[in-house]
Amino acid sequence: MTSPLIEARGLVRTYEVRQGMFGRMTPVRAVDGIDLKVMPGETLGVVGESGSGKSTLGRMLLGIDPPQDGQVIFDGKPMPKLGTREWRALRAKMQFVYQDPLAALDRRLTIAEQIGEPLAIHGLVPKQFQAARVAELMSAVGLRPDQAGRYPHELSGGQRQRAVIARALASRPKLLVCDEPVSALDVSIQAQVVNMLRDLQEENRIAMVFISHDLKVVRNVADRVAVMYLGRIVEEASSDVIFSTPLHPYTKALVSSVPVPGKLLKGRVILQGEPPNPARRPSGCAFHPRCPIAADICRTQVPQLLSVADGRTAACHMVAGVDQSVAA
């Protein structure tokens, strides 16, 4: 059996937030005890609303944000400390793709220079072959050779994101963490970039953590999906089943909130209220104030992420109840 490429065990990340101008510092648990595994070549989708901690999780997986508790294991070894030589060497194997390509690119450097930078930094390719490797990367992501000398502002949003992806692939990473990589793009261009990302991933057997709030995109990209709510994973399953038969009430509401073309809003479950402020985390199950099926136990006891079926976990008192009654 193959071992996971990256594994997170009990990750916790707390930020201190001041309440009001003279208020007291309050700890906010952005990521609150997360376990996950990604196998080589596999894609894990992470979905959730803003404030669910999904971006913090992505940064922690790469060691950019050190955990207060728990650990990240990459390729069987614990993640080295941020900024050390070992960590920098490892960064060649794991790359990050952000939502906003314009912010991720240096606007004073040409596209070719930026794509070539990781090659120079990690000393991966002898200088005389660098130009050839850059050209190869550009064609892999569908950029034309004449665009090599362009600056980021001269490219469209989709082309910029292609350049960012080319740069991320330059060091032949084993893991790609993509944080909302296509959210800023039009649907037509979104599909171009998603398809390209998938092809490159399959060709090079890259594992991917795909963070997004867009369920439709995640479903078509990811093999497995983890749903986050307020710093915790509330449900995890293969993407084939999680959207067709969601178990956790939050996943159900997320699926139901996706507008389907040609279908009217009537009869859909519209979740009331907003995601709570992580600084004021509700007691018990954090979702209970918005949950349509919350019972007394949900207000007091935190549900654990338990296995509910083969390869499926959920953290919900009500789901566990349903499961037992079916078994009985």
């Binding site: 979104q190 599909a191 998603v194 398809n195 369920l215 439709k216 995109v217 078509n220 959207f243 067709s244």
Partner: peptide
């Protein structure tokens, strides 16, 4: 181009 939330998973159509 709209990815589908149901049916079989498929390549997107850009």
């Amino acid at each position: 181009a709209i990815p589908r939330i149901d049916g079989p998973r498929q390549r997107l159509v850009p």
